[in-house]
Each structure stands twice: as structure tokens, then as C-alpha cells.
């Protein structure tokens, strides 16, 4: 297979260098010419965004704010009107609640959901004196589209495995345009690319059966793995201390790349700085619906749950 074919994503050929241009590449993979915010949105004011936090660690907010393209200052001031976001908004208490209620009444906003909704008992998460499940369902009712970010908000993630039995957005809401951007955390390119696509086209990008954009989740980490050669040669790393095993396949260390769809191997993380496998750590499979429970224990592939056989 030649190099070009390896970078075949959702019907578009993209060379490796443009992948590294993070958001510009994210836009390109979705068929957008460049990083541009639609004129219509500008004329009608900045698009409103409600950002709710369920059972979460704020890591996805942090990850969205870990790109330099687009500049985080532009994101907060220029790009969207973030009406409610518990980690960055200046308002607290009733002022925050009023902003939330006013935006829900206004309608036609993009709802970004970070973190899961507890299913075992509403008391696991109360905000402003009521269960977050209720607030979330009210916000979802009037939303134009819902972007679920991170493993928790998409499929439950780690919280789905705890006593709280956290649920993702698509388990609670139907009949709304929903896009899942899983990962623990998600990658900023996925968020900006998807948001751009939606604001430009008024629809969500083409999705797979797990509601993930095909542009980012059509290939497995394993298919583009820089260690694939060693996998084929059956060179498996067993001891991190052995210099002779440098670059060996991490399968025996629990790598879940064979079952995990994501573009991590192609675009790396933190603006091309590194990625889990490149840093000699096994892929944890954080973009898959069965994560975490289905992939635990993470550091061995001796026992594989969920009926998957290597």
C-alpha cells in the first residue's frame, strides 16, 4: 500500500504534513477548505454554546484549550458565545443559573456535554439544587445540536463502570442531531473540526454507527501504528527496560489499538508533540464504546472482555 493510500480518510486524500497542521487539517478532513467561520453566523451574532458538566474531570475542557490553532483567546472571545461553562464563566450561583435558563428559553444553541449522567441514582450529581439529569434534558430539548465530548459523555467511560453507572448523551436523548467525540480526553481537532462543519453546513458530518465522525474514526489506531512493522514481525515488547526491544509492538503490554478507531497515530496529540504509543505506553482504547470496563485490565491483553479475540 502506498503512502497516499494510508492517509485515505473519508474519501479525501490528505498528505501527512497537512494532518499535522491540526485544526486546518481537521477542517480539511471534513471537506472544508480552510479554517473559516461562516459569514452568516457572524452576521447573526456569535453562535450560542451551552456547555454542561456532568460527572467529569474537566479534562475535555482542558484538551479543547490545548491547541494554538485556533488561538484559545479567539475561541473564547470571537468564535462562539459561551453562555454557560462552569470552568471558565465569571458568574456563579444564581447569576450562572439565570444565564443558563435564559439561553435555554432562547433556544437554537449548540449544547456541548462533558461528563456522564448518573443512572443508578440522581443524587450522585446535583447542580443548583436539582439533578443534573433534569437540567440536561431541558437543555437538550431546545438545542439545535448536541456535541458529546469525551468518553464519559459519549458512552459512560470510566463512570459507566462505577456504582453510579454513568450514561452518555445518546442513551438519554433521541430525535436530536447528536455527535459523539469520545476519547479520554477528546482531541481538540475533533471538536473544532466538528463544530466548524456544523456551523458551515447546518448539519453534522457523516457519522459511523457509534455516532462518531467518519473523518476521524474510520481507521484503527493499529492500521496507522508506527510499530506495525514490529507487530507483523511478531516483535512484542515484554520488558520496558530492555534497550533491544525499543520500538517493539506493545500488544503484550495491553495495547488496545487493534480494536480502537481514532486518528491518534496520524495526527498525534498536543499539536503533534507525542502520542500514547509513541511514548511507549499502550493504547487504552479510550475512543471505543466498551472503554473502560470492556478493556480493563488496561496493561495486559491476557484476558479480553467483550468477546474480542486477538
Amino acid at each position: 500500500m502506498d503512502k497516499e493510500k494510508e492517509n485515505f480518510i473519508h474519501g479525501v486524500f490528505i498528505d501527512r504534513r497537512s494532518f499535522l497542521k491540526m485544526t486546518a487539517a481537521a477542517a480539511a478532513a471534513l471537506g472544508l477548505g480552510s479554517l473559516s467561520w461562516p459569514d452568516s453566523a457572524e452576521a447573526a451574532g456569535k453562535p450560542a454554546v451551552l456547555w454542561l458538566h456532568g460527572q467529569e474531570c474537566t479534562g475535555c475542557t482542558e484538551s479543547v484549550l490545548s491547541a494554538l490553532d485556533p488561538d484559545p483567546r479567539d475561541v473564547i472571545l470571537d468564535v462562539v458565545s459561551i453562555r454557560y461553562h462552569e470552568t471558565i464563566m465569571a458568574a456563579s450561583g444564581y447569576v450562572a443559573e439565570e444565564a443558563l435558563e435564559a439561553t435555554i428559553l432562547e433556544g437554537n444553541y449548540v449544547l456541548v456535554m462533558e461528563g456522564s449522567i448518573p443512572n443508578a441514582d440522581d443524587r450522585y450529581l446535583y447542580v443548583a439544587g436539582k439533578p443534573l439529569r433534569i437540567t440536561f434534558l431541558e437543555a437538550a430539548q431546545n438545542a439545535a445540536a448536541i456535541i458529546a465530548i469525551g468518553a464519559c459523555a459519549t458512552y459512560g467511560g470510566i463512570n459507566g463502570a462505577t456504582v453510579t453507572r454513568g450514561l452518555g448523551v445518546s442513551d438519554l436523548v433521541s430525535g436530536k442531531p447528536i455527535v459523539n467525540l469520545p476519547g479520554c480526553p477528546l482531541k481538540p481537532t475533533w471538536f473544532y473540526g466538528t463544530l466548524l462543519y456544523y456551523l458551515n453546513n447546518g448539519t453534522l458530518p457523516p457519522l459511523d454507527s457509534d455516532l462518531r465522525p467518519l473523518a476521524y474514526f474510520s481507521r484503527k489506531v493499529h492500521q496507522d501504528c508506527p510499530r506495525r512493522f514490529n507487530f507483523m514481525q511478531k516483535n512484542f515488547l515484554t520488558d520496558w527496560n530492555d534497550p533491544a526491544q525499543e520500538g517493539y509492538c506493545l500488544f503484550l503490554k495491553g495495547c488496545k489499538g487493534r480494536w480502537t478507531r481514532s486518528d491518534c497515530s496520524l495526527t498525534l496529540w498536543n499539536e503533534g508533540a507525542n502520542t500514547c504509543i509513541k511514548s511507549n505506553a499502550p493504547c487504552a482504547g479510550c475512543t471505543e464504546a466498551v472503554f473502560y470496563d470492556g478493556f480493563s485490565p488496561l496493561y495486559t491483553n491476557g484476558v479480553i472482555k467483550g468477546g474480542m479475540i486477538p
Binding site: S66, W269, A273, S279, A281
Partner: peptide, 16 residues
């Protein structure tokens, strides 16, 4: 975050 990720795979939530 990029500094930390250079040695740890990714940030937030390092891998190494």
C-alpha cells in the same frame, strides 16, 4: 501542556 506531553504522550492525562 505541550511541554509535559513531549515526555508523557499526551496531556491532559499522560500515558507514560
Amino acid at each position: 501542556k505541550r511541554m509535559s506531553a513531549l515526555f508523557s504522550g499526551k496531556q491532559p492525562h499522560q500515558a507514560s
